[in-house]
Amino acid sequence: MEQQGKYIYEYPRPAVTTDCVIFGFDKGELKVLLIERGIKPYSGKWALPGGFIDMDEDSETCAKRKLVQETGLENIYMEQLYTFSAVERDPRYRVISIAYYALVNLSDYNAQAGTDTTCVKWFAISDVPELAFDHAKILDMAKERLKGKIKYQPIGFELLPEKFTMPDLHCLYETVLQTELDNRNFRKKILGYNLLIDLNEQQRGARNRAPKLYSFDKERYEELTKAGFYFEI
Rank of each mutant, 00 (worst) to 15 (best):
S85H: 14
V87Y: 12
R94D: 13
I125P: 05
K121P: 09
T118P: 00
Y152G: 15
Y152F: 10
K143N: 10
A99M: 04
Q153C: 12
I155H: 04
Q112S: 15
D116C: 09
E158K: 15
L195N: 11
L172N: 10
V104L: 09
A99I: 06
L159D: 03
I150Y: 02
P161F: 03
Y101S: 12
Y173V: 00
Y101A: 06
I138W: 01
A132F: 08
Y173N: 06
A99P: 07
A99K: 04
Y173L: 04
K143Q: 15
V128K: 03
I125R: 03
E180K: 13
W122L: 06
F157P: 09
G156Y: 02
T179D: 00
Y101V: 06
S85E: 07
R92H: 02
F164E: 08
A113D: 04
A113Q: 12
P154K: 08
L131I: 05
A111K: 11
R94Q: 06
G148F: 02
G192H: 08
D108C: 12
V87Q: 09
F157Y: 13
V176E: 00
V95M: 10
K121V: 03
D108I: 08
A102Q: 08
E180H: 12
V87L: 12
H135I: 11
N194F: 07
R187N: 10
D168G: 09
F157E: 04
Y193N: 11
I155P: 10
D108E: 15
F123N: 09
F186V: 01
K143G: 14
T165I: 03
E180M: 02
P167T: 05
A86V: 13
H135K: 05
A124S: 15
A136K: 09
